[in-house]
């Protein structure tokens, strides 16, 4: 139990560095989003000459930002619900049953995670093209559900494996119907996992770029694609700053909630020491 001043000094230093590392980029983004359109912020000025929310309301009124936000924030919850519902049976099998080839299936379900996003996106688009299916919204929804299913399956498998067989048996022994067995033995344990799975799919669906960009082009927009349009050839910095903040702030908050949920979904004992 020696106290090392080296550790304290080094960690203090690193915390300072990390603060700069995180605070400077976000501080700059915030400043840029508040630059008043009437007075540009250019080279010799250390700070913007005039700050206002003008840019934000301008973006809201004159760009497709509201539509993009509507698209993103309606796709995400549907993808979340869809992925959770479709993942449930598989997660039940992974978490509670033993069968031949389980490990193989458990690996195979991760395929969407290692497939390069643009390959999936382009050849999904190619499939849609052949089928003459041009409704972009449902296509992107299906794509998001499938690409994010692995996360839901993983999280829910762990939850299902935490349901204790003796509690299930006790409930059945006491004459509970299948529905009340589910309510008593499964639901309390699964609940944090379900929320966590929903949230992670929600967050990743909001962030997803490749599929929305390829399948949605040229005119279907989500928040990431609109951000991309301000980053590419015509780099409109204040606009990009506004969209970046709209994209990142809610997700950070949701992620922090997710972290809490994941902690309660995996009580100690999984990696118990000893």
């Amino acid at each position: 139990m020696r106290k090392s001043p080296f550790n304290t000094i080094l960690s203090g230093l690193l915390i300072a560095v990390m603060t700069v590392w995180l605070a400077v980029p976000f501080g700059m983004a915030l400043l840029w989003s508040l630059v008043d359109p009437s007075q540009a912020w250019s080279y010799p000025d250390i700070l913007p000459p005039k700050l206002s929310f003008e840019r934000w309301s301008l973006m809201w009124d004159s760009t497709s930002l509201p539509i993009a936000m509507f698209n993103s924030y309606s796709l995400a919850p549907m993808a979340g619900v869809g992925a959770v519902l479709l993942a449930m049976p598989t997660a039940y099998a992974f978490g509670r049953l033993e069968f031949k080839g389980k490990a193989v299936w458990q690996t195979l379900v991760l395929v969407p995670l290692i497939m390069p996003g643009f390959v999936t996106a382009i050849f999904f688009a190619s499939l849609l093209f052949s089928m003459g299916f041009f409704a972009r919204y449902p296509a992107i929804l299906v794509g998001h559900v499938v690409m994010l299913l692995p996360y839901a399956v993983r999280i829910l498998s762990v939850s299902f494996s935490l349901v204790r067989q003796d509690v299930v048996n006790a409930a059945r022994d006491l004459g509970a119907s299948p529905i009340s067995v589910f309510r008593v033995a499964y639901l309390p344990v699964l609940k944090p996992g379900i929320f966590a799975a929903f949230l992670i799919v929600f967050i990743l669906s909001i962030e997803e770029f490749a599929l929305a960009f390829v399948v949605g082009s040229p005119d279907f927009t989500t928040i990431p694609t609109i951000l991309y349009s301000y980053l590419g050839y015509n780099f409109i910095r204040p606009n990009a700053a506004v969209v970046a903040l709209i994209l990142v702030v809610p997700n950070v908050i949701l992620m922090l909630i997710l972290e809490r949920l994941l902690q309660s979904a995996n009580p100690a004992g999984i990696s118990g020491k000893g």
């Binding site: 962030e207 980053l231 970046a244």
Partner: peptide
């Protein structure tokens, strides 16, 4: 917690 595109924007901005 930061989406890739936002990270790219932040870097370019800095």
């Amino acid at each position: 917690l930061v989406p890739g595109l936002v990270a790219a924007f932040l870097l370019v901005n800095v």
